[in-house]
Structure formats: structure tokens, C-alpha cells
Amino acid sequence: EPSQADLDALLSAVRDNRLSIEQAVTLLTPSSGGGSGGGSMDAKEILTRFKDGGLDRAAAQALLAGRTPA
């Protein structure tokens, strides 16, 4: 399960175009075949909204942490 520091680094990389959204989703869902963790939004949607400015960093982190299976 990614830590808050991992999520923060991942969000920074996506925002700075050092990591594509697809690459980030793969890192967030290493063994689930890329499927959502059952959250209301999947990781790709969360990351896309964050990059487009629709979500701030704290909200994106909380959503990603919340949808990651324990």
C-alpha cells in the first residue's frame, strides 16, 4: 500500500509530466490488473482531475489513499 510520501511523489511526477497518468495508475495498482479498488473514482480519473486542476493535492491524495486496498 502506498504511503502518503509515495502518493505525494507520484502526484508531483504526474503534474510535472515526469510520469504519465497510465504509468501512475500501473504503479498504484500493481497486482489488481489495473482495476479500481472499488472506490467511487478510479485512480486514472483522480489523477486526470488532479492534473487538470479539478482536484487539489490533498484531495487527490485522500482519494487515492482511500481507494487503495489495505
Rank of each mutant, 00 (worst) to 15 (best):
E1Y: 15
E1C: 11
E1G: 09
E1Q: 12
E1T: 13
P2V: 08
P2H: 14
P2I: 15
P2T: 13
S3G: 13
S3Q: 10
Q4R: 10
Q4A: 13
Q4Y: 15
Q4I: 15
A5T: 14
A5V: 15
A5P: 14
A5E: 10
D6Q: 09
D6I: 13
D6K: 09
L7W: 11
L7D: 02
L7C: 04
D8S: 09
D8P: 04
D8Q: 10
D8R: 07
A9Q: 09
A9N: 06
L10C: 02
L10V: 11
L10A: 02
L10Q: 00
L11P: 00
L11V: 01
S12R: 10
S12A: 06
S12C: 09
S12I: 08
A13G: 04
A13S: 04
A13Y: 05
V14C: 02
V14R: 00
V14W: 02
R15T: 04
R15E: 10
R15F: 11
D16L: 07
D16Q: 10
N17L: 06
N17T: 03
N17S: 09
N17R: 05
N17Q: 05
R18N: 06
R18Q: 09
R18T: 10
R18Y: 07
L19K: 02
L19A: 02
L19C: 05
L19I: 15
S20D: 04
S20V: 02
S20F: 02
I21M: 03
I21F: 02
I21W: 01
E22V: 07
E22Y: 05
E22P: 05
E22G: 05
E22D: 13
E22L: 08
Q23L: 08
Q23Y: 09
Q23S: 07
Q23N: 07
Q23F: 07
Q23C: 15
Q23A: 10
A24K: 00
A24W: 01
A24N: 00
V25A: 08
T26A: 15
T26V: 11
T26M: 14
L27Q: 05
L27E: 03
L27T: 04
L28H: 02
L28W: 06
L28V: 04
L28K: 01
T29E: 08
T29S: 13
T29A: 09
P30T: 13
S31Q: 11
S31N: 11
S31L: 14
S31M: 09
S31V: 06
S31E: 13
S32E: 12
G33R: 06
G33H: 13
G34P: 14
G34K: 09
G34T: 12
G35A: 11
G35I: 08
G35P: 14
S36C: 13
S36V: 12
S36H: 12
S36R: 07
S36A: 13
G37D: 07
G37L: 12
G37A: 08
G37Q: 09
G37E: 08
G37R: 07
G38C: 15
G38E: 13
G38P: 12
G39N: 10
S40W: 14
M41H: 06
D42W: 14
D42S: 13
D42K: 11
D42Q: 09
D42C: 15
A43F: 15
A43Q: 05
A43L: 15
K44D: 03
K44E: 06
K44H: 12
K44I: 08
E45L: 07
E45F: 05
E45S: 10
E45Y: 05
E45H: 06
E45Q: 10
I46L: 03
I46K: 00
L47Y: 01
L47A: 02
L47I: 04
T48W: 05
T48R: 10
T48E: 07
T48K: 08
T48C: 06
R49T: 03
R49G: 03
F50M: 02
F50W: 15
F50D: 00
K51H: 04
K51E: 01
K51I: 05
D52E: 14
D52W: 09
D52F: 11
D52C: 15
D52S: 12
G53Q: 03
G53D: 03
G53M: 03
G54I: 13
L55V: 03
L55G: 01
D56L: 05
D56V: 03
D56N: 07
R57L: 12
R57M: 14
R57P: 04
A58M: 10
A58G: 06
A58C: 09
A59T: 14
A59G: 06
A59D: 08
A60F: 02
A60R: 01
Q61M: 15
Q61V: 09
Q61L: 15
A62W: 04
A62L: 09
A62R: 13
L63I: 04
L63M: 12
L63C: 04
L64F: 02
L64N: 01
L64T: 01
A65I: 07
G66L: 07
G66T: 09
R67D: 07
R67P: 05
R67W: 12
T68W: 10
P69I: 15
P69V: 11
P69L: 11
A70V: 12
A70T: 04
A70G: 13
A70P: 10
